[in-house]
């Protein structure tokens, strides 16, 4: 249904519009990463990727 797509698109555009100030705030005023910070994020996210692959294999 076209009107549903237009409604969804309006919702997405509204979210983009309201997310922009949050992005600007955090990119300008947020603390910068220190040594080892990104490593501490990548490890659990890699575990999530592995876990999701495992879940997909379980339902196949």
């Amino acid at each position: 249904m076209d009107w549903m797509k237009i409604l969804a698109a309006a919702g997405v555009v509204m979210m983009l519009f309201f997310m922009w100030p949050a992005y600007k705030h955090w990119s300008q005023n947020g603390p910068k990463a220190e040594k080892g910070d990104w490593q501490a994020v990548v490890l659990p996210l890699a575990a999530i990727v592995g876990f999701v692959v495992l879940l997909i294999m379980m339902v196949r």
Binding site: W26, P31, D37
Partner: peptide
């Protein structure tokens, strides 16, 4: 750990 450095990246 303080993960607030991820703010800009996440948004």
């Amino acid at each position: 750990r303080d993960f607030s450095f991820m703010g800009g990246f996440l948004f």
